[in-house]
Each structure stands twice: as structure tokens, then as C-alpha cells.
Design a protein around this nucleic acid. Structure first.
Length: 293
DNA sequence: AATTTAGACAACCGCACAGAC
DNA sequence: AGTCTGTGCGGTTGTCTAAAT
């Protein structure tokens, strides 16, 4: 027995662009009854407002979340947001809701649209010149950013609010070896277990990173990680740093990045940029389950 | 001035997942 | 364990507007 469709097309429900009246009906309803139970909302809104909100619940939910919510940030994407989107996309791929969750007041739909209409083209163009996807053209990476807003009803709001998704973990994040390599060269850190395609534990393999034990030759090997959101924040920062030329240092002095051994007291020289995390803290991040892609 | 094209973004669609029963 | 419901997500389409011809 199949599931009942959200809304059949012959129920006389409105489709297409929302009117101001519909927006007001929905806003008033949510203010009174709160979010949730979207499927029942149109029927209840009829009783509540004595007027028909002839929209399916799914459409109501989308309209509220993407447009009517008071904590939506209006206005164009800033340079910082632009840069963050690129970095998070490098890390997460097309997981728009997760990316949106790290950007104050932005919705997944907005970021998805922004990516598809702006960043894809720009990054393709940049790839001709460099493999580094970090935004270098700080002068004006996207002309749209500097343009006045097209939408008269969109105004710049306080960006302190973050539209968080309900996602608390982001699983199966593919981390390319190329991304990990420049982060930290040195010490062998052993993971608890590695799961292969058959879901069987195997001997830990390793690559050149603090996350796994030792080097492997296969450059195509990627990691499929499972992050908590705060860990994602940290790793996002980590990936944005260039440590390829950085010396490691400890209380005894400087060590080469290619040292064979570095003890627990070793600190990486980026405490400020990485919120004071020492090397042991970073290695604690290795308590993930690693799945080979 | 009229028409065409491209860009931007709102909205829809189908599927997946989690929780309740 | 299986089914149903509510919700969330990502891909795609539709529509509007501005720029180009």
C-alpha cells in the first residue's frame, strides 16, 4: 500500500507564486499555532482565518522556511559568505542544508541557487588558472555582490541569527586525499577501525594525514567521514589553512614537517587561527568511523 | 520600441528518513 | 517487523526581470 500523496493536483489547490494574501494567512497561522504539522495546516488555516489557504502543506512549509521566516537574512551574499560557501562545498559537496546551517540566516535553497548561478561558473573559470578554489579575487569575486538589491522587500538584517537545520551530524562527507595532504604532514595516528564495502572491519589503511596511520600510494583514495557539527566547523577552518610550508614546533624547538616522530607535547603553529587547538586535540578528532569510499 | 536571450530565484517534485503505531 | 505519517532534502522546472540585439 503506497503512501498518500502530499497533495493531489485535482484538489483545487493553488500553485505557483504566492500572493501577499496567502503569505499573510500563512504568517498569521504560524504566529498563532507555531511551526509544524504542515500537512494539516491548510485545513486548519481555513477554520482559523475563515478564508482558504489553498496550498498543500508541503508548499506552506517551503514558503515559510525559505521566505517568510523572520530570521531569514535578506540581502546579497557577502564576500565572507561567498568564501565560506566555497570552502564548505569543497568539504560537503551538495549538502545544501548543512552548508546553510553554517551561514547566518541563509536557506539551503538560496545557497543552492547561488551556487548554481554564480559559483559553478566562476570556479570553472578559475580552474583554468589554478587548482586552488579559495577565492583569491577579493577585489570583486562576484559583481552581483556589490549590486543594489533587486528585491525592494529584501533589506539587510542582523546577521547574528543562524538558520540552523535539524542536522546535527553530517555523515559520509567525502574528504579527498588531496584536501588532507597539505594540512599536516607528520605523525602516524591509528584509527580504531576501518569498514570496507562489505561492512567488515579491516586493518587500518593509512594516508598522509593525522587522521590515519601511514601513507598509501593511491592518490584517488578518498575518505568518507562522519562529523559532528562543531567538528565540521573545526575541520572547515583546518582545510582553509595552508600548512604545507609550516614548520612544526614543540617546547624543544622546531621540527621538520617530515619528522618521523612527534610527541604528544608537540604543538602546531596555528593556535590563533585554529582556536587554540593543540596537536592532541586535533588527534582526538580521529575518533571517527572511517568508511572507505 | 519590440523581441530575444540570459540570469536569478521561487516553487515544485520525488525520494528518503525517522518516529509513531 | 511492517506500515503510515510528517518532515527534510536535493534536483529540476517555471517565471519574472534586465540586458542585449
Amino acid at each position: 500500500m503506497g503512501r498518500r500523496p502530499c497533495c493531489s493536483k485535482d484538489e483545487g489547490l493553488n500553485r505557483g507564486a504566492w500572493t501577499a494574501t496567502e503569505d499573510k494567512l500563512l504568517t498569521d497561522y504560524v504566529k498563532t499555532h507555531g511551526e509544524g504539522k504542515w500537512r494539516n495546516l491548510p485545513k486548519r488555516a481555513v477554520l482559523f482565518m475563515h478564508a482558504g489557504l489553498k496550498r498543500c502543506g508541503k508548499s506552506c512549509r517551503l514558503r515559510w522556511l525559505n521566505y517568510l521566516r523572520p530570521d531569514i537574512k535578506r540581502g546579497n551574499i557577502t564576500h565572507d559568505e561567498d568564501d565560506l560557501i566555497i570552502r564548505l562545498h569543497n568539504l560537503l559537496g551538495n549538502r545544501w542544508s548543512l552548508i546553510a546551517g553554517r551561514l547566518p540566516g541563509r536557506t539551503d535553497n538560496e545557497i543552492k541557487n547561488y551556487w548554481n548561478t554564480n559559483l559553478v561558473k566562476r570556479l570553472q573559470k578559475n580552474n583554468h588558472n589554478s587548482s586552488n578554489l579559495k577565492v583569491k579575487e577579493k577585489e570583486n569575486p562576484n559583481p552581483k555582490i556589490q549590486q543594489p538589491n533587486r528585491h525592494p522587500f529584501k533589506t539587510n538584517m542582523d546577521s547574528s541569527c543562524v538558520v540552523q537545520t535539524k542536522a546535527t551530524r553530517c555523515t559520509k562527507v567525502v574528504i579527498s586525499q588531496q584536501l588532507l595532504k597539505p594540512i599536516v604532514a607528520p605523525p602516524p595516528i591509528y584509527v580504531d577501525h576501518v569498514i570496507n564495502d562489505d561492512d567488515k572491519a579491516v586493518e587500518p589503511k593509512s594516508i598522509l594525514s593525522p587522521f590515519v596511520s601511514k601513507e598509501v600510494d593511491n592518490d584517488d583514495l578518498d575518505l568518507n567521514l562522519d562529523f559532528k557539527m562543531d567538528e565540521l566547523d573545526f575541520f572547515s577552518d583546518l582545510c582553509n589553512e595552508d600548512f604545507s610550508q609550516a614548520p612544526l614546533e614543540n617546547n624543544k624547538g622546531h621540527l621538520s614537517p617530515k619528522s618521523d616522530y612527534i610527541d604528544d607535547q608537540t604543538f602546531l603553529p596555528f593556535d590563533d587561527s585554529l582556536h587554540g587547538w593543540d596537536f592532541q586535540s586535533i588527534t582526538n578528532l580521529t575518533q571517527f568511523k572511517f568508511d572507505w569510499v
